[in-house]
Design a binder for these strands. Sequence first.
DNA 1: CTCCATGCAAACTTTTTGCAGCACC
DNA 2: GGTGCTGCAAAAAGTTTGCATGGAG
Lengths: 141, 141
Amino acid sequence: MSGFVLACKERGLRLTHQRLEVYRALAKAKDHPSAEMLYQRVRKRVPTISLDTVYRTLGSLEEEGFIARVGTAMSSARFEFNPEPHHHFVCVRCGGIRDVEAHSLGHDALAKYLPKSYHVLSSHVEFRGLCPDCLEKTSKS
Amino acid sequence: MSGFVLACKERGLRLTHQRLEVYRALAKAKDHPSAEMLYQRVRKRVPTISLDTVYRTLGSLEEEGFIARVGTAMSSARFEFNPEPHHHFVCVRCGGIRDVEAHSLGHDALAKYLPKSYHVLSSHVEFRGLCPDCLEKTSKS
DNA sequence: CTCCATGCAAACTTTTTGCAGCACC
DNA sequence: GGTGCTGCAAAAAGTTTGCATGGAG
């Protein structure tokens, strides 16, 4: 908590009542809430807060690295035909998605890391980084 | 292709011009297109097709297992505070998300499976299946 | 006092749905 | 010929943005 206060000062973020409560609500949450879910929770303590403030606050906190977005941050759904189990590499620069062969990163190899109390149906790895094309453009410039 | 025709008959799906063209466009695509991207491509061959037909067709093809959706299928963005690198388990029944410790499935262990031409910044595993709670409810009934 | 953050409303994007007509089987 | 699919339009859901006000520093 106090670490958050200090970090805000360092980065020039204003420490508003709303921002603090959104941060606290997410730090306390164990269920990976959506913006709407956080809005409902924070509203109990700050009845006048608006949903767009929650969105804007989450955006700020994400930019500053305090919080993370679960799963892929893609604006729209993407589809593929490849019926073989495989993984994906997402380029953070060009947004392109490339298939990654499962090789020894198969389902069984991954699923064994979970407790036996889970019934795992599928497993999927998503890598993020720079694809060969963007990497080449970077080194050239 | 002919496999698709046969599979449609087996499952009682009507083999319309539109459905076939959406299927072909996705089978040919290498870039994991969105519904809108597919719409633009199919429109060149079937100028009267509508975007909602593309959506409906993609939904049917996904249900039948012909195609897959890339990444997490979540209606809204979900956030988390946990700053430690970790993975996620998504329950297909209750939609709940649980953290999975990275253990030996750390970034380095995963990234080594990619060609060196990629610059990998992060790696994340997403498991899907039944969580312990839903599994228990299933066995009881 | 200054400027960033907030709240309100409205726009925007992506996806879904109701309905009438058409096409596949 | 009946049923499911299509196209149109409108709605729904999630998220973003413009603008005037208010509160933090």
